[in-house]
Amino acid sequence: MHTPLQQAISEAFHQADLARYAHDNAAAFTWLERAHILSQRRPLLHAKSHWLMLTLGWQQRDYREVAGQLPRVVAALLFSRIWVPIGNTGRARVSAFKPMPVAEELHTLLQDEKPVRPR
């Protein structure tokens, strides 16, 4: 059984894929930003959001985005369980350390999420 948060993360990745296939890069990034915010406490999904931003940046020949996403992929795998800047959209043009306001809809999904503790 999937929680509402898990369903929202899956939906965000799915919508990002649909937007990419429709060549709507702006919408794809918007959905990936949503996936990023929702998955920040889940290392593999968090890294996936950065990887997909990196590949979308590559397709657009946006090398600033690519260069900014490379360290974020690694950091997502290593630090997601320790600390994340809540609400950060994950794009390369935003500081990787800057917390950002969270939309009410996303806040509702995240409020029941307990921090994942290392085993």
Rank of each mutant, 00 (worst) to 15 (best):
W83I: 04
N88V: 00
Q15R: 15
P85C: 04
R42E: 13
A8Y: 12
P85G: 05
L56H: 08
L45A: 02
D17V: 12
A8L: 11
M100P: 08
D24M: 05
R72I: 09
F79Q: 03
P115C: 02
A92H: 06
G87F: 08
L38W: 04
P71L: 07
D24F: 12
T108L: 10
S80W: 03
W58L: 05
I37G: 02
P85M: 01
L56F: 04
S39W: 11
D62R: 12
H2K: 15
L109N: 09
L54T: 03
R93A: 15
L106I: 04
S49T: 02
G90D: 03
R34D: 06
Q60F: 04
E33L: 03
E11Q: 15
A103I: 12
M1H: 12
M1P: 13
A35Y: 07
H50R: 04
A67S: 01
R91D: 00
R72K: 14
M53E: 04
A96V: 15
A76S: 14
A35E: 05
R41L: 07
T89K: 15
Q6G: 13
A12L: 10
D17H: 15
Q59E: 14
A47T: 09
I82N: 07
R119P: 12
E104R: 12
F29A: 08
Y21W: 13
Q6R: 13
E33W: 01
Q60W: 02
V94E: 14
T89I: 07
S80N: 02
